[in-house]
């Protein structure tokens, strides 16, 4: 593990990748390995404390191309910075599999060790992140100076990234009509900055920019200062430099609250999911599934009461190996 950590800090791709795999691993034995790796890293003088930059927006608004261009430009502007990208895409609810295609739009030169890209699937998780996203960020921010996390965010329920990112950017495209939907869903209230992509589209882009500016005042009436709106084009490169510079500035200020502050939310979420899983397991394995249980209890309300007492009794029983 020690060697692995040393190599990962030097950005050896395979070492970084193997460490990430430990942080994505759902088996109980991975818990110990994770703790060991983190302990080694936190003591290490060479560790970074990278800023986590969340980028979210509707599918097709050009997030991947944009992040690719930004990461490359950041690396050009600052010879010391290292940048990692974690791109999260949804899984198929039917097969559980996922098609992760963001890599086709992000191409880093193979000889640059400072840039790293990893795809992740949401699996069946709600919130827009994968089960391992939080853990992987805990690792990555110690290895890289800036960590992009890209998620599809089209509703409040997909915005867990806001609890993970130090700075959250919402990407919009001209005349996408997204801002209306986002206003309704309350999403406009969340990000720290907005990126209006595809500003190469001339007049349409200008009109969108002004519409956006006015709708922002409506959406966030109590803020002393409006949040920044960047006009860029991932395609032509327009506006990328300015945004990259601002992101570098953000990256140089280490995430003030650090990872510890984020643990609260993700631990609570884990508890919710884990206990939900346990309850579901009890329901299907111990009491004959929802129908059987309801039939026995005679009514929905009685079933709710019975279930709570039943599950407590089940948990109180000693388990194998305990």
């Amino acid at each position: 593990m020690k060697e692995q950590v040393e190599k990962a800090l030097a950005h050896d791709r395979y070492a970084v990748s193997k460490l990430i795999s430990i942080f994505e691993d759902s088996r109980p034995e991975a818990l110990g390995q994770r703790a060991e790796a983190l302990a080694l890293l936190e003591r290490h003088p060479g560790r970074r404390s990278g800023t986590i930059l969340g980028v979210t927006g509707a599918p097709g608004c050009g997030k991947s191309t944009l992040i690719g261009a930004l990461a490359l430009r950041m690396a050009e502007l600052d010879p010391d910075i290292s940048v990692a990208v974690l791109a999260v895409d949804p899984s198929s609810p039917k097969s559980g599999g996922a098609l992760l295609g963001d890599r086709t739009r992000v191409r880093f030169p193979p000889d640059t060790q400072r840039l790293f890209f990893r795809s992740q699937a949401t699996a069946t998780e709600l919130g827009g992140l994968g089960p391992g996203s939080f853990h992987v960020c805990r690792l990555m921010h110690l290895l890289f100076g800036a960590v992009f996390i890209e998620t599809v965010g089209i509703g409040q329920s997909e915005l867990d990234v806001r609890y993970l990112a130090d700075r959250l950017y919402l990407v919009l495209q001209p005349l996408g009509g997204d801002e209306i939907q986002f206003m309704k869903a309350g999403i406009m209230e969340v990000p720290d900055a907005i990126i209006l992509n595809k500003c190469d589209q001339g007049e349409a882009a200008q009109r969108s920019y002004h519409a956006l500016k006015s709708s922002l005042t409506l959406a966030r009436p109590f803020e002393p200062e409006p949040i920044p709106v960047y006009q860029v084009s991932g395609k032509t490169g327009e506006g990328i430099e300015g945004l990259a510079r601002d992101m570098l500035d953000a990256a140089r200020k280490p995430g003030a609250a650090g990872m510890a502050a984020k643990e609260d939310y993700f631990f609570a979420k884990w508890v919710r999911d884990e206990w939900g899983r346990m309850g579901t397991e009890f329901l299907s394995d111990q009491v004959g599934g929802p129908r059987g249980f309801l039939d026995r209890a005679k009514s929905f309300d009685a079933a709710q009461a019975d279930f709570s007492s039943g599950v407590r009794a089940w948990l109180a029983k000693p388990r194998k190996g305990e």
Partner: peptide, 16 residues
């Protein structure tokens, strides 16, 4: 192949 692999449950990274 990429689409089929997802269909059976792989996480597929299509790299173009």
């Amino acid at each position: 192949i990429a689409v089929s692999a997802r269909h059976v449950g792989f996480d597929v990274i299509y790299s173009g």
